[in-house]
Design a protein around this nucleic acid. Structure first.
Length: 512
RNA sequence: GUCCCGUUCGUCUAGUCCGGCCCAGGACAUCAGGUUUUCAUCCUGAAAACAGGGGUUCGAAUCCCCUACGGGAUACCA
């Protein structure tokens, strides 16, 4: 049975690198038909705080990464939180001690540190000097009598070499002399990372471990410990880090990038998921966008790249926009709801085909992240609209603009435009699907109201009758109606606005 | 310092394992056009890379060595 795990420590929210690690483990497990486990490594009592747990879970869930076993869902090999497994570590430590693979060390952290400094000053490797490794009984008794508490250190076999058959990097070998007699258990019985990690990977029958390459050195220690326990280690894949623009490690300790910030900015989870996957893995030579199913059909740990990648938010933005554009209209409207609070009442989201659906539809190819929406659609609400500088310019630079606007308002009065207030509009709008595709016939939709293409047809005739080029005419009208020089097709806007407000805005702009 | 790992367009990468199909392909970004009532979308095109040096070979982005540069690790953190 294939089993993989993601083992975050609750020292902060889920950041980008953690999300990618989780994603690769998840994808590998799913692609191989295995099990994906979530385990919490909270043995650093200084920095761990359970308050981060919900945030981490939420981040993973937002990305659509589901775990089969974990602290909240349980499972046959729990508990899945290390601080709840202390007796287990004590048992393993005892056995290792008895078998001579570990020893008690009575040095204080300060003494160890001082020794390290000495080594360093002497130009040697700053390591623990292994002084408690072969402690005479009398000496030990003296230290105990002093009231010292023992920590347990791994007894690295000397000499020798360890090699990791890394799924990502290939074979990596290091000499035992390079490896410290590291601390497995603190005097208070709380294990350290490498120890708890090995015990749990063993107990939880983990078969593959995908983790950041900052763990490579830990990998050697862990392989040695598995050997001491007479067990086979999992297959490791130490993957390169995600780097910031400066080429430095993207760490949760420096950059507090919570993956949920992307959700709050209105990035689509699927797009973020897709983009993160690409940071070190590629779907194929000519495609960047793919579904989860397609990913699982192709994903393989040994295809993960060997070199670090820089995070590029520009491409993430593009990808988010691409996902937004391809969203079914109803989904888009639903996704937009949290970003329109205060502007649009919640019950307006019930229908994706009425006024709101049409309004939002006009912006689906105009936003990359949902948070852009509120500012862009605001013109369609409220009675009047304030013109931005560019819009004002469009009217002012055209000497006859104000006259056209006034005349156009008169003209519009005789056209069957929908009324202005959304509550009366939904049924009428449902007959149209905005944005209006180019070249739509004027009366393509049967409706008591004039649709956008009919309005355009009419406006062209209006401009032509005055000997004005349509392009020149249209700009001041857009400015008057929406207050900006950008946005959806003008007649979609006009239709959306409805009669009363359109006339009022045209007249307001006409009188300056 | 020491140990480990890495190096293809500005960025993410395909190709590297099993040398020739690669005077290196795709995507983002950039620039130039086209469509268009604006913006956006969409379409077309351009510019843009095998870190450097030695080998091996008929032939190297692909194999070997060295150098340079980058990253990671050197904790009673994870």
């Amino acid at each position: 049975m294939t089993r993989l795990r993601f083992a975050p420590s609750p020292t902060g929210p889920l950041h980008l690198g953690g999300a990618r690690t989780a994603l690769y483990n998840w994808a590998a497990a799913r692609a191989m038909g295995g099990t994906f486990i979530l385990r919490i490594e909270d043995t650093d009592r200084e920095r761990s705080d359970d308050k981060w747990l919900p945030t981490i879970f939420e981040g993973l869930r937002w990305l659509g990464i589901q775990w089969d076993e974990g602290p909240d869902v349980g499972g046959p090999l729990g508990p899945y939180v290390q601080m709840q497994r202390l007796p287990l570590y004590a048992r393993y430590a005892r056995a290792l001690l008895d078998a001579g693979h570990a020893y008690e060390c009575y040095c204080t952290p300060e003494e160890v540190e001082a020794g390290r400094e000495r080594e360093k000053a002497a130009g040697r490797r700053p390591m623990y000097d292994r002084r408690c490794r072969e402690l005479a009984a009398a000496e030990r008794a003296r230290l105990v009598a002093e009231g010292r508490k023992a920590s347990i250190r791994a007894k690295i076999p000397l000499p020798g070499t360890v090699t990791i058959e890394d799924l990502c990097k290939g074979e990596i070998t290091v000499s035992h002399e390079e490896i410290d007699d590291w601390v497995m258990l603190r005097p208070d019985g709380i294990p350290l990372y490498n120890f708890a990690c090995v015990v749990d990977d063993l107990e939880m029958r983990i078969t593959h471990v995908v983790r950041g390459e900052e763990h490579t050195v830990n990998g050697f220690k862990q392989v040695l410990l598995f050997a001491a326990l007479g067990a086979t280690p999992p297959r490791y894949a130490h993957i390169p880090l995600i780097l910031g623009k400066d080429g430095r490690k993207l760490s949760k300790r420096e950059a507090v990038t919570n993956i949920l910030e992307y959700r709050d900015k209105g990035f689509l989870a699927d797009a973020v998921f897709n983009y993160i996957t690409l940071l070190g893995w590629s779907f194929s030579g000519d495609r960047d966008v793919f579904t989860r199913e397609e990913l699982l059909a192709r994903f393989s740990i040994d295809d993960i790249g060997k070199s670090g990648s820089k995070f590029d938010e520009e491409k993430l933005l593009w990808m988010s926009g691409d996902y937004v554009r391809r969203l079914p209209r109803a989904r888009f409207v639903a996704e937009a709801q949290p970003f329109l609070r205060g502007l649009v009442p919640d019950d307006a989201f019930a229908s994706a085909t009425g006024f709101l659906g049409n309004l939002l539809g006009c912006y689906q190819e105009r936003v990359q992240v949902l948070a852009e929406l509120a500012g862009k659609v605001a013109w369609a609400f409220g009675d009047a609209v304030a013109l931005d500088d560019e819009a004002r310019g469009k009217i002012e630079k055209e000497s006859e603009a104000r006259a056209w606007l006034a005349q156009y308002a008169e003209h519009l009065e005789n056209l069957p435009l929908p009324p202005s207030f959304p509550s009366d509009r939904s049924a009428a709008d449902a007959a149209f699907v905005l944005p209006t595709p180019p070249g739509t016939a004027p009366d393509a939709v049967a409706s008591p109201f004039a649709g956008p293409s009919r309005l355009e047809h009419d406006a062209r005739a209006f401009a032509e009758a005055r000997g004005v080029k349509f392009g020149r005419f249209v700009h001041p009208v857009r400015a008057a109606l929406t207050g900006t020089t950008k946005g959806p097709g003008l007649f979609d806007c006009l239709f959306l606005l409805g009669k009363e407000r359109a006339l009022a805005r045209l007249r307001a702009a006409a009188t300056g």
